[in-house]
Design a protein around this nucleic acid. Sequence first.
DNA 1: TGAAATATCCTCATTACTGAGGATAGAAAT
DNA 2: ATTTCTATCCTCAGTAATGAGGATATTTCA
Lengths: 253, 253
Amino acid sequence: MNLTTKETDLVFSIMADLSYGYASSELRRRVGLKLLDLLDAQYFASYVWNTTENAFCERVSINMSDDNLGAYEQHFQFCDPITPVLQRRRKATCVSEIMPRSRFERTEFFNDFLANDGLHYGVNYYAYSGGTNIGDLRIWRGRNKEDFSHRELDILNAIGPAFTNAMRGAMAREKTTQGKVDLVTALEQAANGAMLTAREKEICAAVLAGLSDQQIATKYGISFTTVRSHIKHIYGKLGITGRTQLLSRVIMH
Amino acid sequence: MNLTTKETDLVFSIMADLSYGYASSELRRRVGLKLLDLLDAQYFASYVWNTTENAFCERVSINMSDDNLGAYEQHFQFCDPITPVLQRRRKATCVSEIMPRSRFERTEFFNDFLANDGLHYGVNYYAYSGGTNIGDLRIWRGRNKEDFSHRELDILNAIGPAFTNAMRGAMAREKTTQGKVDLVTALEQAANGAMLTAREKEICAAVLAGLSDQQIATKYGISFTTVRSHIKHIYGKLGITGRTQLLSRVIMH
DNA sequence: TGAAATATCCTCATTACTGAGGATAGAAAT
DNA sequence: ATTTCTATCCTCAGTAATGAGGATATTTCA
């Protein structure tokens, strides 16, 4: 398989997006836009499977009606004859690979949901991390188009693992409060190691929160000079000479 | 730019390698092998810059003599007229872009080291994470070949960011000092979000490392006022008013 | 090629921080 | 009961950082 100039540009552009460090939703939106162009498709949707609720959440969509997708989330996803099968696949899969076209077009799911928005030919890719579905790519073409070819599936399959990896990274970064908690525990450790008093720890945390000496004084209702005294003691105990060193000291041991 | 069948296969294969989760050295070896094929080159070397020792370490090489590379690590890297310049670039750069061929071929570095192993035309790519060089790709062609073309540089530049991202992930997995890596990735995110330039990211990282403005100036060999300029721009882009706020901004999002 | 972005350098006034020297009152430990 | 620790307050000299105003050369990109 060779790639045309336009395809090469799009593939490289997607690679760049996957490496940039976007948040998971922005990542899916950007990749979706470019995949539509790359695969000559018109409709894109992406969800993240929520294991606790057993449902698809965090919708990202392009060219699809919100009402229809709302209906999918509320109703159709629970009587969807194709997505659970597609979801089990670990590679890009056309709807037509798992259900004959004739039968598919007679389903309620197709007639009342997909066709409602003009979706006729679909291919899905599901990203997995350690057995957990962490996001998907659902690409659809309209009635006037044809089904996806092997070539197009190959392209999607090439991009798939890179997308999975990027989603994994994005979700790891989004795992809430991680940094904050780490900072607090790191501070606690450093403080205990250096025998900081309770008050000194408090001041220390305030410094790390980005407050100026005067702000700290106001916050704790003590005088500026008292704050300075505390900070001087903290520096002495930690063997540092300034607040920026405080951070590197606390974070990097 | 279009890609031939062979090139497409190699690009997709590299993408797969970059997403697989290999250790950093294995990652570089695999990518190196495929890049040689992709760029019609014969020699590959890759190092990771060690900031504490100010030297290139963790060699991975293909088709190059161990003796010669040993000499590079011991001696030539410290009197290398081209690599420090290439290293400062944030994109794939040919040796011929930074030094005229005629002058280059008269250097001791070329005659006693490179030509010794048959290396004539080279292109390098340096991966950066938050101002830190976390790995490189050095690709060389022999005497009987020609210099690398723009097209080949474009290909390498497309793969570059994905390689950087993969290296970042690999090193995060390998690093035991979790905090440091978290800080680096957090910085990377904040920097991307605020559209910081490469140089600004570097300065930003130095500030976070606890260096004073004067120390930063010395470290990068620029004037104190230039550092101040960069920092001023960083504050403007991030909407903050001081370095302690920078800390809380980067750490706590 | 021309515009925009980037990296580099500069001054000057002001503010914030650091280091070194105190003092005092109360709590905790020996 | 005395010492040590802690929290609070103070001055003052010196250093570092900030904000606002530039300038210029190079690189990048449309």
